[in-house]
């Protein structure tokens, strides 16, 4: 299946990406606000509020303030949200209500290129959001340079992973409100249990094992390590997992979209 798919993807997918960029540029000022304000809100709430109750957290043989612990996780969560929501709700609207994909299918582009363009666009939004957040969080001195800059290419990989699974759901949901199901069953548990707000080691043993299946766990581990400048070869396993996740869900997304749209 992989070979068949790759034969139908040329550089033309960039045209779909460009289309979304053209639309994005009309509203970019509004799109910039959430990644700009969200870390500020969280750092305020958790640093000043909850952080006072929690105190210090053990991380990598040292004690760190709670707010420093969650700041990199917020970037990871935003990478997930941006790609996943772009390739679910926004892509669904373009596919189902606006018939944008149908219109593009009458041009030299293939469906495979349309889906690739959409997923790469979702990942691009993850990159933009993580960039803005890194800038904001840097003002608090929570990012170690130059390691922290690795978060930018990581955002692309994470974006493709979460965008692919988002697009997979877009290919199978009958109606737009059904997206609440994967959000409730997949996104929200990840948001809470992927080592975002407390170390995974605090979970019972079985739950720890379960958490390692979730892609966000690996993304959080990586953003946190890069933010603190803690580099070791174990991180390659986390990168590998995200890569594998993408390699599974990207062709699956194309498969279900093909089944849905090519009649």
């Amino acid at each position: 299946m992989m070979k068949k798919i790759s034969a139908r993807i040329s550089r033309r997918y960039i045209r779909v990406w460009q289309r979304n960029l053209t639309v994005y540029r009309k509203t970019w000022k509004i799109s910039f606000l959430p990644p700009l304000l969200e870390p500020l809100f969280y750092i305020l709430a958790f640093g000043v509020g909850l952080g006072a109750l929690v105190g210090k957290v053990a991380y990598h043989n040292s004690e760190i303030p709670y707010v420093r612990f969650i700041a990199p996780a917020l970037i990871a969560v935003n990478i997930m949200y941006n790609a996943f929501f772009e390739n679910t709700f926004a892509s669904f609207v373009r596919m189902y209500y606006q018939k944008t994909f149908d219109a593009i299918l009458a041009t030299p582009l293939t469906l495979e290129e349309i889906i690739t363009g959409e997923i790469v666009w979702g990942a691009t939004k993850s990159v933009i959001a993580s960039f803005v957040m890194i800038v904001v969080i840097s003002f608090f001195g929570f990012i170690t340079y130059p390691h922290g800059l690795l978060i930018i290419p990581l955002a692309l990989l994470g974006g493709i992973a979460f965008g692919s699974i988002g697009m997979f759901f877009t290919g199978i949901v009958p109606r737009i409100d059904i997206f609440n199901l994967p959000i409730f069953l997949f996104i929200t548990p990840m948001f809470l249990f992927s080592g975002t707000f407390f170390p995974i080691e605090n979970l019972p043993f079985w739950a720890q094992k379960l958490a390692f299946v979730l892609p966000l766990t690996h993304l959080v581990k990586l953003t946190r390590s890069f933010s603190f400048g803690v580099m070791d070869f174990d991180l390659l396993w986390n990168v590998g997992y995200l890569l594998l996740f993408s390699l599974v869900f990207f062709p699956l997304a194309i498969f279900v979209m093909h089944r849905r749209l090519i009649k």
Binding site: R19, V23, K26, Q98, K99, T100, D102, A103, A106
Partner: peptide, 9 residues
């Protein structure tokens, strides 16, 4: 095409 699939964005 039959339906008006212009790009409303």
């Amino acid at each position: 095409q039959q339906e008006n699939n212009l790009d409303p964005d």
